[in-house]
Design a protein around this nucleic acid. Structure first.
Lengths: 249, 249
DNA sequence: CTTTCCTGTCTTGTATGCAAGATAGCCACA
DNA sequence: TGTGGCTATCTTGCATACAAGACAGGAAAG
């Protein structure tokens, strides 16, 4: 487990627990995160929970609806596109900047791909989701640049939320193939090719999304009434929260 | 002024004030940011100041030394290298992903370069520092991708802190030339060339730094005593804070 | 003169209390 | 049946109080 910003024992725990919950697809987009519940769960006061939420908010993972609550973000279609675009830019830029694949690197990625394969064989979908995202983080770790690792980790978390919202079926085999091809290019020392493959791979995944569905159930009604399409990054605006199961303390 | 995450009136003010203070080189690295002082300055309680600090910390702008205080980060030599590397990766990736330069884009960049020129003529160094950083943010804005804009804004802020620490002289003319060349390539529609120029430009700036000096005045002593080189991203460790002028409430 | 220790005062860390918006459920009423 | 409005209770927003570590300065001892 890389660190990049270790230290602070209890504090980061809430934050990291939530992020890793998302990375392993155990927390769905739109999930309500009650300050009181989290405080009770982690045996701390709301103060510290709030700090964690603030941090997660600046990381684009969580969102607050004033006096209504904190929610795991539900990226809109436009935001989803922006996330994939950002990933293409950064991941391709990263691969292009690489010059060598070290022995450790080759071993790490190879081991990872084997894990993907065995998770596919076992049909363990949650684990698979985690591994599919983690592959890209692993590549970033090869660069040794903690800044890029952190950025990509957060983007990967958002990607997973996006696929939980918009992905109709899970083309695990296709993704795995994409990863393998990238790895092969890297082994061949052809990082330009690896960058291109990485872009294609992300395009494939993005194409597999159906961005016309879910997150704004009123979109059809809204457009038939010809109201403004939707507030993109601006905040309040009612945004009808889909009924959550959780029921507060 | 782009927005990307507008809304929240008072709250973001503290955060944005500090960031823009850094972007315009009015706040030096290592500056102490007392919760009490900021609270008084903005007429709010420490609670809200703390929230702003937490956010800035996750953005890599600010750093807390437990029970000692908040400080604007003083990037180490390694961190400085990582910041430049991350910028090369992202900015080159971004330019490579571009396909067209719109008329508005050409106009915006052209106007910006004129501003650079006039600031150089006027010898307004603070303004020049701001503009030199802002050029890169402007390019990101052309992409219309708010995620990348935010990332690059924060990296630019760090870059400015780095140059305040390590830059012996300010080669404004050289930087300006670099910007002009990038702009020309973009106008010619040659974004691959623009990406290459962007990398060269960042290399130039990075080369102009003297990473052997400042931020850890004890480094020579430390190495002559053969102590561990320095805690990189881990926290406490005494790290003798250089005497600050400010004196608290 | 140097060293050690002690104490006052600064800082942040954390919990708690109160204010106020948002919502759901109910009741009255048409 | 449907509609409007009231109220009880949830939520977060924000300020404040207190705890506890860090540090500086001075006094006392060597």
């Amino acid at each position: 487990m890389q660190d990049s910003h270790t230290s602070e024992s209890t504090q980061k725990t809430i934050e990291e627990t939530i992020v890793s919950g998302i990375l392993s697809a155990k927390i769905r987009p739109g999930t309500r995160l009650s300050e009181n519940q989290l405080a009770a769960l982690f045996s701390v006061s709301r103060t510290r929970v709030r700090e964690a939420m603030m941090r997660l908010e600046t990381r684009g993972i969580v969102h607050v609806s004033p006096r209504r609550g904190w929610f795991v973000v539900e990226p809109s279609g436009e935001e989803a596109i922006a996330v994939y675009e950002a990933r293409r830019v950064i991941e391709a830029g990263l691969l292009r900047s690489m010059r060598v694949l070290t022995d450790e690197g080759r071993e790490a990625l190879g081991a990872h791909l084997n894990e993907e394969k065995s998770a596919m064989a076992a049909g363990d979908r949650q684990r698979l989701t985690y591994l599919m995202g983690d592959f890209h983080i692993r590549i970033a770790e090869l660069s040794g640049n903690a800044i890029i690792v952190d950025i990509l980790r957060d983007l990967t978390a958002r990607t997973i939320l996006i696929s939980m919202l918009y992905q109709s079926e899970f083309h695990a085999a296709q993704s795995h193939d994409g990863h393998c091809r990238i790895f092969e290019a890297m082994q061949a020392g052809d990082f330009v090719r690896a960058a291109e493959l990485s872009i294609e791979h992300l395009d494939e995944v993005e194409t597999g999304l159906d961005l016309t569905t879910r997150p704004d159930p009123l979109s059809e009604l809204r457009s038939s009434l010809s109201l403004p399409p939707k507030t993109v990054s601006s905040a309040p605006t009612v945004r009808p929260q889909k009924p959550q199961i959780q029921r507060s303390n």
